[in-house]
Nucleic acid binder design. Structure first.
Length: 610
RNA sequence: GCCGAUGUGGCUCAGUGGUAGAGCACUCGAUUCGUAAUCGAGCGGUCGCGGGUUCAAAUCCCGCCAUCGGCUCCA
């Protein structure tokens, strides 16, 4: 059955709609006025529109709770009903300063100091309330519809986004052109929640967390492990085709290794504490640490022999599990964990090979995304912040590395944006950014150019003229991490994996117990050619078996009864993705066992549909 | 780490001061059944953990742990 959506409601983005910008600017001012009415001690700071609404940050001696939102919303409705005109006024810097001082709002003064242009614009709500604001705004509060506004949540937020500064109270709200849009927005949010990988991962039994094991440390169940290994072997195969060399390295190493790499100095707070045999060893920093990255290990393998230019590029690859002591408040599902597996590789190349090799890596990454049907991503040039001291190496090395990345994206004609301050401590990156079901952004794939670690580890190769030269390193991971990738994939597919990735590809459902032997025999044939299949042995009625298989999102169901045994066939029901990307369960009809085997084999090889 | 919220059987949830309940799942029995739930019975919970208040705590208070939404930080 096809669900008919009654009327498609378009939800505009704030950045694309001046009308929404006005609504949300004005709504945030009305909210701030309401808050100051109810909490006279609250001071206002900033309150911009965001893609789906707006927020406003307050410095309040008493924190707001979710219960307060109701009262604030009520107060907002009152303000709206008073039909206050929104008046724009231009004043001189001095005038603005005086007025701020008159109402004792120190944050506004700081904001004023940041505004470069003059005159300063102030927006008034009638003669009741005003704030510095660039606008645009509605003409009157009466143009807001209280039924198209919702206050969503409260959160702590640091002043200026700086954790050393005051913690403010942020209220998130959303406002729309009509109540219908608000309802649609809320409906979509609920729908997004249904795609949440934490929910689906639990339902499908892919991974678990245990309080005893610890936060941010996922445990992979048999089904989840099948999914992981399918992804791993897919990439492994692609890498072998491209001359990568597999390696395996330990999970821990002496602190000294990470002192040499610079991790101990620049990455210390992201690392689990050192293990040391004795207090004395600890004091002398003579212990072991869990690895937060694989690069220093791969470097040791490179360095274990004198390398010739003939060996380069040398591409050492490992699914290496790393451990990072992420702040507790950062952890969440599979997208942010403390132990994760990087599909890591370090390429040691001559400076002349760098550009070409970089392009090959980007090509691999894009083809991996294509195989996974991942289309919605952004490319970010993650460069260093020249004013920060969190990086190692010379300006020259950074210029060269950043130049190489820029050349690559220009050559490819890729769309990209720049993230200053987003570089790794040892080098700049080209990152591929995806969104989760709640529109949060996550970095998956990454390619990094590194002149610094070869320097720190004194890496060399013998050039064709017999001299010793320094290689350049490329760090790269198409998946980024298996954990985060799987989190994103689950949400992308809403749990309905393409046949080649589905942990269980086929389940056979017997109409009666007497058909189980035939079903078992067909499953054995499937397993023999690498198809993941099982028989439902629960003995329930067919309707129930189908319901369970649908709930488990198994791509192919094969019903077995007298007819099928007779003709060595299966009555196939399959979950098939339509053009719009929605999964529909379809009766494919009766197919011979041979035909089913062939189709599944094809799906596995081509990553296509059943 | 910071601000706020939440934590009841494997899962989803009800229970707000009087000593724990439902549905699903699981086990057993009956049913042998053709495309999204057959019927019945049974098993299962130190109500996140620790302390306190009270004659009495899942319920009120304090601390801790975990999860969720943000902030900050990152694959």
């Amino acid at each position: 059955m096809v669900a008919q959506s009654p009327k498609k409601i378009h939800l505009p983005k704030t950045s694309e709609s001046e009308s929404l910008q006005k609504i949300r600017h004005t709504a945030s001012h009305v909210m701030a006025m309401a808050v100051q009415k109810l909490f006279p001690k609250a001071q206002v700071t900033i309150g911009p529109w965001i893609e789906n609404g707006f927020y406003y940050d307050f410095d309040s001696p008493e924190p707001f709770t979710e219960k307060d939102l109701k009262a604030i919303k009520k107060e907002m409705a009152k303000i709206i009903r008073r039909q206050l005109p929104v008046i724009r006024e231009q004043v001189s810097r001095e005038e603005a300063e005086q007025r701020i001082k008159a109402i004792a709002e120190p944050y506004k003064l700081e904001i004023l100091n940041d505004i470069k242009e003059e005159p300063i614009t102030i927006y008034h709500l009638g003669d009741q309330w005003w704030d510095l604001c660039a606008g645009p705004h509605l003409e009157s509060t009466s143009q807001l519809n209280p039924d198209a506004i919702a206050l969503e949540s409260v959160a702590g937020a640091y002043w200026r986004g700086d954790e050393t500064k005051a913690q403010l109270q942020r209220i998130y709200g959303t406002a729309w052109e009509s109540p219908e849009q608000l309802v649609e927005y809320q409906r979509r949010k609920e729908e997004a929640l249904r795609r949440d990988h934490r929910k689906i991962g639990k339902e499908l039994g892919l991974f678990i967390f245990s309080d005893l094991v610890g936060p941010g440390l996922p445990l992979w169940t048999p089904k989840g492990t099948v999914l992981r290994s399918t992804l791993e072997s897919f990439l492994q195969k692609e890498q072998l085709k491209r001359g990568y060399l597999p390696v395996v390295t330990p999970h821990i190493a002496r602190v000294d290794l990470f002192k040499m790499s610079g991790h101990w100095q620049k990455y210390h707070e992201d690392m689990f504490p050192m293990m040391a045999e004795s207090q004395d060893a600890k004091e002398h920093e003579q212990g072991f640490v869990m690895k937060p990255m694989n690069c220093p290990f791969h470097i040791q393998i490179y360095k274990s022999e004198l390398r010739s230019y003939r060996e380069l590029p040398m591409r050492l690859a490992e699914f290496g599990t790393v451990y990072r002591y992420e702040q507790s408040g950062e952890l969440g599902g599979l997208t942010r964990v403390r132990g994760f597996t990087v599909d890591d590789s370090h390429l040691f190349v001559t400076p002349e090979q760098l550009d070409d090799e970089f392009l090959k890596v980007v090509d691999l990454i894009l083809s991996v995304f294509e195989s996974l049907r991942l289309k919605n991503f952004k490319a970010r040039l993650s460069f260093r912040d020249p004013d920060s001291d969190k990086y190692i190496g010379s300006d020259d090395a950074w210029e060269k590395a950043q130049g190489a990345i820029r050349r690559a994206v220009e050559t490819l004609g890729m769309n990209y944006f720049e993230g200053i301050g987003e570089a790794a401590f040892y080098g700049p990156k080209l990152d591929f950014i995806f969104q989760d079901a709640l529109d949060r952004e996550w970095q998956l794939g990454t390619v990094q150019v590194d002149y610094n670690l070869p320097e720190r580890f004194d890496l060399e190769y013998v050039a064709d003229d017999g001299t010793r030269k320094r290689p350049v390193m490329i760090h790269r991971a198409p998946f980024g991490s298996l954990e985060r990738l799987i989190g994103i994939l689950i949400e992308e597919y809403a749990g309905d994996f393409p046949v080649w990735l589905a942990p269980l590809q086929v389940r056979l459902l017997a109409v009666g117990d007497e058909f189980l032997p035939f079903a078992k025999q067909v499953v054995e044939q499937m397993q023999a050619i690498g198809i993941r299949a099982e028989v439902d042995l629960s003995g329930d009625r067919l309707g129930k078996l189908i319901r369970n298989a649908e709930k488990d999102k198994i791509p192919v169901m094969g019903v077995v009864g007298a007819k099928e045994v007779e003709s060595n066939s299966l009555s196939i029901r399959a979950r098939i993705r339509n053009e719009a990307g929605n999964i529909q369960s379809q009766d494919v009809g009766s197919l011979s066992v041979a035909e089913v085997l062939e189709r599944l084999k094809q799906a596995n090889e081509t990553h296509g549909n059943f």
